[in-house]
Write a protein that binds this DNA or RNA. Structure first.
Lengths: 353, 353
DNA sequence: TTGAAAGCGCTAACAT
DNA sequence: ATGTTAGCGCTTTCAA
């Protein structure tokens, strides 16, 4: 059954349709666009010609003359992170139900990749931009975008576009206070390697703030080699030391569920009982967080609402239905207490020097 | 800091650049395209003008005249499935490193959604199509595509495009034989609800084949309400009955890791010990399959290689570097034995009537 | 109700 | 080495 791909012929244009139906290009255009005031007979004969030729609209040409497109560019840090994947899916769904296509650009949280990605998107004249995360301080991105098109930040924030997000700072503070209320005093923050995105910054801020309010010291950890070592205050340390060494941490607030699950896995492999020996709280409420074997305590974001609101905001800006200053939608987060957090171990302070 | 978005002015064109630099449009075009034979002085002054105006190429216009684009359309069944998300990420990466943008279309394994998605992609004149999964018998899709552009199937197969995939049938048979070799005789197949995609069909085929070879009866289960009920031979049954009732199943082959993890979760909640009471094998080797708490035995696909080969095949077809009959790349799969499979319980046959 | 003509921003012969 | 010109496939006045 393996037939050779046939040579591809140029697709038919409205001109071909016009000739075949004996009408003019503009009339054909009128029926394609469902313009009013076309003789039903004419419409039918044109449609017959369209069917016969297998004509399919060339959106590129339309876009050139109309000077607008119906595709939105979505900048995402890491599609392999289930949270972003879920968000991407929702966004694609809502966009497509509103007549918009989506072009993704996965940045790996690398500013250069991000910048060329944005440049490409703009060169393609996407109608709007959506950031699901952004790298660096966004000054570069801002410069490239240069106010050329509407942009909305979902799940992250900046002052040069509309924002649809949860208050990361407050949510992180709530997560941290949850741990503090359970009696934990040495609470670490686990996040991505050196590079830090906006949400990360805010969450670390909320964490540090809550600790400061309680008179506690922060300990910010960033993965060095994923399941083995982290860098703490500039020095590389085995995760095991952090979790089991002298002055060990009894609780962890992870910047997202993926990190939380990694920490959980480290704890398992180190023979630590969670939550008895170690409490872990994540962020995002990824689908897998709720299975019995994981049961991750986490901060849930209303993913679908975030996506819908973001798409609506962006499409309204695109259509000019929304004008004026940037708006910030702040949605509610929920702390979902499952099986990875519990009272701090009582021998907690004995081990600390 | 919330400044109102400024009114968006039309972006500068090569015409503006030409005027500012005192050169002609074609010269400007020449420097943009890095055409040879441009006076260095000229080039510089043009570039100065470009910088001053903040000119950015309009790819839409270029695409219209060149009659080709550098975006490939990717049709994916469910972005929220980590396997597809990982694949999507790899594909995006390889494509972008080869100068191609990617437009995704998430179909929810719904044929209508898929069809309009493909239609949109074609109207946007994507240079090629990539299917990460497709719904239905693909006759509809084939008709819409109508040989207009190159298409490659990754991770699934069809006879009207190039194929880059693992042999799903053989892999499923291997997975099933693994279970049979462990002494299991009542082995169920778990898959998506009513709708079935290509990979699903093949895997079920391999499963049924291996069982038949061993003189065993297949039991095909499709989720009805996700974590609670399945439909077996047309009737709705609680999962718990399948796993713990009379004549219960002692092993499960899941069409993908997501289903496998769901089954694992059901088993956990039903108080079953895995793998002591129930063996489970999945398919895909999703990132989470390898954490200690899951330790899922599964069939691994070489994701990155699949993605790279698929992108290369497609881009070569697009550039005409690859001609002639469709090729089928069949990559090797690996059975990774972890902690969810073990010998069948000895009391196995006593319960069966 | 339909058609003719101009033009969107760019590229690619072809002249110069 | 640079400029002139003619489109790419469509939409959109404006006339007929």
């Amino acid at each position: 059954m393996t037939l050779p791909p046939s040579p591809r012929h140029k697709p038919p244009t409205i001109h071909d349709v016009a000739r075949l139906s004996g009408k003019s290009k503009s009339t054909v255009s009128n029926v394609i666009r469902n313009a009013p005031g076309v003789n039903p007979q004419t419409r039918e004969s044109v449609q017959a010609a369209i069917a016969e030729l297998g004509y399919q609209l060339n959106i590129v040409a339309r876009q050139l003359v109309q000077q607008r497109s119906a595709v939105i560019g979505v900048v995402v840090g890491d599609l392999a992170n289930p949270f972003y994947a879920e968000m991407a899916k929702f966004i694609e769904n809502f966009a497509s139900s509103r007549g918009f296509q989506v072009m993704f650009c996965n940045t790996q949280v690398d500013e250069d990749v991000e910048l060329t990605g944005i440049r490409n998107l703009i060169e393609h004249r996407v109608a709007g931009l959506m950031f699901l995360a952004y790298a660096g301080d966004a000054a570069g991105a801002r410069h490239v975008v240069a106010d050329r098109l509407p942009v909305v930040f979902v799940t992250c924030a900046a002052d040069w576009g509309d924002v649809v997000a949860v208050d990361d700072f407050a949510a992180a503070a709530a997560a941290t206070r949850h741990l503090i209320a359970l009696g934990h005093r040495r609470i670490a923050y686990f996040a991505d390697s050196v590079r830090e995105e906006k949400a990360d910054t805010d969450r670390r801020g909320g964490y540090a703030g809550a600790l400061a309010d309680a008179g506690l010291e922060p300990l910010v950890l960033r993965w060095h080699r994923k399941p083995h070592t982290v860098v703490a205050e500039g020095v590389i340390v085995p995760v095991e030391t952090i979790l089991t060494g002298v002055g060990r941490v009894t609780a962890v607030f992870a910047a997202n569920d993926l990190h939380a699950i990694d920490v959980l896995d480290c704890a398992d492999r180190a023979g630590l009982r969670v939550p008895h020996d170690l409490s872990i709280i994540g962020f995002d409420d990824v689908a897998l967080a709720r299975i019995a074997r994981i049961g991750l305590t986490t901060i849930a974001q209303p993913k679908e609402m975030l996506a819908e609101l973001a798409v609506d905001t962006l499409t309204q800006r695109i259509k000019g239905e929304l004008q004026g200053g940037f708006i910030r939608h702040s949605l509610d987060f929920t702390l979902i207490s499952r099986a990875t957090t519990a009272k701090a171990p009582i021998d907690d302070d004995r081990h600390s020097a």
